[in-house]
Simulated scan of single mutants.
Amino acid sequence: MPTALIRRPSSRLAEGLVTHIERTPVEVELAFAQWQQYVDTLHGAGWTTVEVPPIEECPDSVFVEDTMVVYGGLAVIARAGANERRPEAAAAEETVAAQGYEVRHIADPGTLDGGDVLKIGSTIYVGQGGRTNAAGIEQLREAFAPLGADVRAVPVRKVLHLKSAVTALPDGTVIGYEPLVDDPAAFERFRPVPEEAGAHVVLLGEDRLLMAESAPKSAKLFAELGYVPVVVDISEFEKLEGCVTCLSVRLRR
């Protein structure tokens, strides 16, 4: 059974970092309800969830994906590009280690956020230019090379993280909202989508795609391609540049 790490939002969520969009008020109570719907949707799709202990003093801590990159039986613990977020990693490391994963770390001068990492089979694309730097990418490459992974740096300048711009369909096609993708040619197969939020999908299995309610045109496109959109409302997290990918760490070996 597939497992996902999740982390309950902090009551200080509304203070989260914003970099590429204008700040708008966050309804924290609604965000808690949306987070629970996200978790319930994972459960409904046959996933088990494991909670990383919450960290109240870190407003962005609900975006647990940024704390690590998991490949095979190895979890590389990230070193956040934003200093304020570095305390989020410790409890996430303990939680993934308890799931039986070997652990390594990104070390100074490297920085890396898990949201900058897109895995497609043995190819791992890593966004460089925002929260993740060249030293962090090289350390990730060294960690995963013995496992047969091909780590490739791609530019990210228009959005917070690589997976703010692109994710991938089950067949390996990279999808993205083209105005926010720095270099579509960096990917072997690229398909544009009609909405920014349509670029973000989580593969639930059996051709099901977890995605945001705010991308109905993209959902229609995916359905026409033979996939089954599973839609959740994450409006309050989108106000903080969050999306469906960054609210969990999917553990599948």
Rank of each mutant, 00 (worst) to 15 (best):
F190S: 04
E178Q: 15
V156E: 13
L204P: 02
D183I: 03
P194N: 15
V202T: 15
V156F: 13
L169A: 07
V166W: 09
A186I: 00
P184A: 06
E195F: 09
A212N: 13
A215F: 04
Y177C: 06
V201G: 02
D207K: 13
A199C: 08
K158F: 13
A186C: 15
S164E: 04
V181S: 11
V202L: 14
F190N: 01
E178I: 09
P216W: 12
A212Y: 06
V159S: 11
D182Y: 12
A165E: 03
P216S: 13
S218M: 08
D171W: 05
E178R: 15
A186H: 06
D171L: 06
V202D: 07
M211Q: 05
P194D: 13
F222R: 08
E188M: 01
S218I: 06
V202P: 02
I175F: 08
I175Q: 12
V193R: 08
G205F: 00
S214K: 12
D182H: 11
L203M: 07
H161K: 10
K163V: 01
L203Q: 14
E195W: 06
R191F: 12
G176I: 00
A186P: 08
K217A: 13
L221P: 07
L169R: 00
E178D: 10
D183K: 13
A186Q: 03
L180H: 14
A168F: 03
P179K: 05
L169I: 06
G198T: 07
R208I: 02
A165C: 01
S218G: 04
F187S: 10
R157C: 06
E213N: 11
V174K: 05
S218D: 03
A219F: 05
V156M: 14
K217T: 05
V174S: 05
E196F: 13
L160I: 12
P179N: 04
S214I: 02
R208N: 10
E195C: 12
K158N: 12
A215R: 01
V174F: 04
V201W: 01
K217S: 09
D182E: 15
A168D: 00
E213V: 04
K220Q: 14
V174L: 07
I175K: 13
T173G: 07
A199S: 15
